[in-house]
Amino acid sequence: MSCVEVVNHGDGIVELKFARAPVNALDPALCRELRAALDAAVIAEARGIVLSGGPKVFSAGLDVPHLLGLGDDREALTAAWQSFFAAARAVATCPVPVVAAIAGHAPAGGCVLALCCDYRVMASGDYRIGLNETQVGLVAPEGIQRLMRRAVGAGRSERLLVMGDLVEAERALQIGLVDELIDIEQVAARAREWLQQLLALPREAMLQTRRIARADLVEALQPEHIQLERFIEAWSAPGTQGALRALVARLGK
C-alpha cells in the first residue's frame, strides 16, 4: 500500500498526500515514495505541488521506533537518515512551487519538510509545529538551523531551537513560521488557491526569481551543512537513546 497518495486536480496542480497511518511517520519507504512522487509530478509537467498530510497530523517526523529498532547497525541508521535528508532536498530543489498544507501537528521532521516548501498553510487551533530535537538530546544540524533562521529570524530561531519549542498555530503565524491559518477542513483547498494565484504570474519570470530567492535554502541542505556522521554519533549516544525510548514509551500510553 502506498504511503503517498497522488491527487491530480486537473489544473496543473498535483497534491501529494502522506498516507501512513496513524501519524505519517517518516520511515525510509515514505521518504523514497515522496521523492519518486515529486519526480513523477514534474515529469508529468505539474505546474505546482501541494504537500499535505492529516488527519490532525501533517507528519509526526521521523519514525523513531523504526530507527530505534535498527539498534547499533550504523549502516542502516545512516541509510535511514540519508533517505530523510534526500526527501527534504527533493522538496527544496523541486523546480516548481510546493505549498505545505499542514492540517495538524508538524514536529521535527514534519517541520523540516514544511520549511522546505514555498508557502505554509496551517490549521488553526491546538496544533503545534517546530524543531524539538534538544528535548530528546539531539542537536539540529547547522543546515536545519538555517531553515529555521530563514523563516523566523536569527534571534527567535536561537530561542526556539535551544529550547526545542513546539509552538501553537497562532504563535507560529505571528513569528512567520507559517504563512496563514485556516479551518482544518479548508487547509488543502487554501493551499491550492494560493498556488493558483502564484501560477497566474508570468511563468518564466516567477520561476527564475524563485530559483534565485531559494538558493540559500538549497545550499543549507547540502551534506557539508548536515554532517550526517556527527549526527549519527549523537543519535547513538546512551543519553540520547534513553531520551528517545522514554519518548516512545510516553507516546505509547
Rank of each mutant, 00 (worst) to 15 (best):
D183H: 15
R190S: 04
H105C: 06
E158I: 09
I175V: 15
A123Q: 09
L177V: 15
R128F: 11
M163A: 15
Y119D: 10
Y127Q: 07
D118F: 11
V99F: 13
V98K: 12
D126N: 13
V91W: 04
Q186R: 14
I129K: 06
L147H: 06
L166P: 04
E180W: 11
V167K: 03
D126P: 00
A92H: 02
R150S: 14
P95N: 14
D126A: 12
S124H: 05
A103E: 14
C116S: 10
A169P: 01
V91D: 07
W194Y: 09
Q145V: 03
A86K: 06
V136G: 00
A86Q: 12
R149V: 12
V99C: 06
A191L: 12
G109E: 12
D118H: 08
L131Y: 06
Q82M: 11
R159W: 10
M122A: 13
D118Y: 04
A114F: 07
G109L: 13
Q145C: 12
D118S: 14
E185S: 10
A103Q: 09
G130K: 12
F85Q: 00
L113V: 13
A191S: 15
R190N: 10
A108E: 03
A140P: 02
E168D: 12
R89F: 08
M148D: 00
Q82I: 07
A140V: 03
L181E: 02
I129H: 07
L177K: 07
V112T: 12
A151F: 05
M163L: 15
Q186Y: 08
G143H: 00
R120S: 12
Y127V: 08
E133M: 13
T134A: 14
P97M: 04
H105T: 01
L115I: 11
C94W: 05
R89L: 12
L161C: 03
P95R: 12
G125S: 11
A151V: 03
L161D: 02
L173P: 01
P141L: 01
I144E: 00
E142T: 08
E170C: 07
L173K: 15
V152R: 03
Q145N: 10
D183P: 04
R128W: 11
L181G: 02
Y127W: 13
A92D: 07
L115P: 05
H105M: 01
I175Y: 02
D165Q: 10
A188D: 05
S157K: 02
I144Q: 01
A90P: 08
H105E: 09
G125M: 14
A92G: 04
A189Q: 06
I102V: 15
E180H: 11
R192G: 04
C117Y: 08
V152M: 08
D165M: 10
I129C: 09
S157L: 04
F85K: 00
R156Q: 14
